[in-house]
Design a protein around this nucleic acid. Structure first.
Lengths: 136, 136
DNA sequence: TCCTTACATACGCTAAAGCGACTATATGTG
DNA sequence: CACATATAGTCGCTTTAGCGTATGTAAGGA
């Protein structure tokens, strides 16, 4: 243990400095969400989503887990208490933004009626949402 | 009042995504600090400091006030409660970072012995520091 | 084994950021 | 008015970011 490197604050905030990435983080929240939902909700080309997820991964803000064909993303709280606080606050802030709320509504609807979305047919539900979705 | 535009979250975080700007914000803290101190503490060419301050201004994170030859910068809390919380948390986080602490120590020393710094001779002291500086 | 699905990565481009060096502006001073 | 000081803005350049398009890859199904 020669000395743990200081957390990259700059990189952390850079990762938050893009609206697509903020929307992704907002959609994930405290769940574990499959990429196909991001593509469905945010629209646009899939590689765009993938690249932003890669950016968030490289900044250490999210982690991916493979489950068969699907990739699930979740937010990992930083090893730094300060960063954790800021990240939590940020997520709370996003919750109050109009566009972010709309996104979340669409995610809920999508995962409760995934059969209706051709692109989501058979897609794995977001983890905690599956248990607590009040609409289903 | 047609409807207030949503606060630019993206821009907010972009402004925090640079180490020089983070150091500036850390030096300002809850005070009002003269540019000459930034130049003295951070080193490097003065235009660099000025440009970063301009960026922070354009993002609405700081405000400048002229007093004779000198410009004083202070942090302005965003009109958005969420942003305010995040900004406060961020400043607290910075306080715990080693480099940031070192910067603050140097600021304190500089303003308590401004006569010793040729470039700071006669420079106005940071506002609240002048009253609460325990070293002077 | 071949094909599809779900996702990631590479490529070429444009736009924005950051930097150093220079110039401009505003205020105070002699 | 001439000049020094404090700070801001401009210019040319390099780097990074973001985008769309095309391609690569890993897993599952036929």
């Amino acid at each position: 243990m020669a000395g743990k490197r200081t957390y990259n604050v700059e990189r952390f905030f850079q990762a938050l400095g893009d609206n697509t990435r903020l929307r992704l983080l907002n959609l994930i929240g405290d769940q574990e969400v499959c990429v196909c939902y991001f593509v469905e909700i945010l629209g646009g080309p899939q590689p765009k989503i993938s690249r932003h997820l890669a950016y968030l991964r490289s900044a250490g803000i999210v982690q991916a887990r493979r489950e068969g064909k699907w990739m699930h993303y979740r937010i990992v709280m930083p090893p730094h208490i300060g960063a954790t606080q800021v990240l939590r606050q940020t997520l709370e802030w996003l919750r109050k933004e109009k566009q972010m709320q709309a996104d979340r509504v669409r995610l809920t609807k999508a995962c409760c009626a995934s059969a209706k979305y051709a692109s989501l047919d058979g897609a794995p539900l977001p983890a905690p949402v599956a248990a607590s979705c009040e609409v289903c």
